[in-house]
Computed example of a mutant assay.
Amino acid sequence: MRAEKQTFKRAKRLRRDLSLPEVILWDCLRGLRLNGLRFRRQHPVGPYVLDFFQAEGRLAVEVDGAHHDLPGQMHHDLRRDDWLAGRGIRVMRIAATDILDERALEGMLVMIAEAARG
């Protein structure tokens, strides 16, 4: 599914402006570092940009900061997740605080690998 030109531009900008939790997680996922799985960062899909995407497993990994707990953002996230699910993409949401906690991050990486493998 092809993304709009505007979405590609937004994805490119987001790749340059990763948050600290996104930088940490990307360091763990890039270059086949997680069990040989290939991930893309800030990947455009339709009108959305996915934080991380594992194409073979059709898995989107989203890093959620505190603003994702706000009612308006929660509604947007649900609508977005439903849209992605309709296209066969599963969404895994990870709290940014879990990525910043080294022990929690290890567990998150195991969960990501298992979800990507199916």
Rank of each mutant, 00 (worst) to 15 (best):
A3I: 01
E4S: 13
K5W: 10
K5Q: 12
K5D: 12
K5E: 14
Q6S: 13
T7I: 11
F8C: 09
F8W: 13
F8H: 15
F8R: 14
K9R: 13
K9W: 04
A11G: 06
L14P: 00
D17G: 06
D17I: 00
S19R: 09
S19F: 02
S19N: 01
P21D: 02
V23K: 15
L25I: 02
W26E: 02
W26I: 01
W26Y: 04
D27L: 08
C28L: 03
R30S: 03
L34C: 08
L34H: 11
N35I: 00
L37S: 03
R38P: 00
F39R: 04
F39L: 01
R40P: 02
R40F: 14
R41I: 01
P44H: 05
P44Y: 04
P44G: 02
V49F: 06
L50F: 07
D51R: 09
F52N: 05
A55E: 14
A55R: 14
E56G: 12
G57L: 08
G57T: 03
G57C: 10
A60D: 15
E62G: 04
V63E: 02
V63A: 00
V63Y: 00
V63G: 02
D64L: 07
G65L: 09
G65Q: 08
H67W: 11
H68A: 03
L70H: 11
G72Q: 14
G72H: 13
Q73H: 12
M74A: 14
H76R: 15
H76Y: 14
D77C: 05
R79P: 00
D81F: 05
D81G: 02
D82C: 09
G88K: 00
I89Q: 02
I89Y: 03
R90E: 12
R90P: 03
A95F: 07
A95R: 15
A96L: 05
A96G: 15
T97L: 13
T97R: 15
D98A: 10
I99V: 00
L100S: 06
R103L: 10
A104P: 02
E106F: 07
E106N: 09
G107Y: 10
M108E: 15
L109E: 04
V110I: 15
M111E: 15
M111H: 14
A113K: 10
A115L: 09
